[in-house]
Computed example of a mutant assay.
Amino acid sequence: MESLLPIFFAFIAGIGHAFEPDHLLAVGNLISRRDTLAEALRDGVYWGLGHTTMLVIVGAIILLSRVTFLTSSYFEAAVGFMLVVMGISRLLDQRRPPPKVRPGATPSRAAYAVGLLHGLAGSGALVLLVMSEIRDPWRSVLYFVVFGSGSILGMFIVAGLCSVPFTKRMKISRTLKVSTVTLSSLLCIGYGGWMIYGNVRW
């Protein structure tokens, strides 16, 4: 029974994982491009799905083959670089007219890709932690699935909260919206730069 306790808490841990700073900044940057709550929530779910997909794949590879190269801090640096690019891209997008998306289109592929990269970066540390608590590899994989499910719900909540300043229904002033997007983008760039600096051997 004690060996199952980490799995019982995996869902709650997954929800909390969604609120980590780099996750908040990445998803906040993504949904700042959305005009409706439904689109923002969809981005949150797609990010969670991408994160869970990579977490399960990489976690299973590390656990079953005992490889170590997937725990490199350079993956964290890659996430930092992605945040910098996202922040710069969002700043530049403010000067362009909003793209026209045809009805029925699903522009959430970017959110899924961002989730994949985040899952790759965070898998190593999580796998090592789980390996110290759960000896059965397949039970560990179950932990990742449950943890990932919690992160999907957590990011769904995050997307809903972060979307409030950006939805058209709020009818906020353009100046306030531009200021909010600019601040979000600068935070992305700054935090991403800090992640690169802290994870690359100079």
Rank of each mutant, 00 (worst) to 15 (best):
R102G: 10
G87A: 07
A77H: 08
Q94A: 01
P97S: 15
M82R: 01
S72R: 00
M86L: 15
S72W: 02
P107T: 01
L91F: 01
P98V: 14
D93M: 08
L92P: 00
E76Q: 14
D93S: 14
T106N: 10
T71M: 13
V85H: 05
F75P: 09
V79I: 15
M82V: 03
P97F: 12
A110N: 02
P98Q: 11
Y74G: 04
L70K: 01
P107L: 04
V85R: 06
L91Y: 06
V84C: 05
G104D: 02
F81Y: 01
K100C: 06
P103L: 09
P103Q: 03
Q94S: 08
G104W: 03
S108C: 06
F75S: 11
G80F: 10
E76C: 06
E76S: 08
Q94H: 00
S73G: 09
L92Y: 05
G104N: 04
M82T: 00
R102F: 10
R109D: 03
M82Q: 05
V84A: 02
Q94D: 11
V79T: 13
A78H: 11
P98N: 08
V85C: 11
V85N: 02
R96Y: 04
R109F: 11
V85K: 06
L92K: 07
I88P: 00
Y74S: 10
I88E: 04
S72G: 03
R102N: 09
A77C: 10
F81N: 03
S73K: 05
V85S: 04
D93P: 00
V84N: 04
M86A: 05
V85G: 03
V84W: 05
K100P: 04
S73F: 09
Q94P: 02
P103H: 06
I88F: 10
G87D: 08
G80L: 13
Q94R: 14
L83S: 05
L91C: 07
V101L: 15
P103F: 03
R109T: 11
L83V: 06
S108N: 14
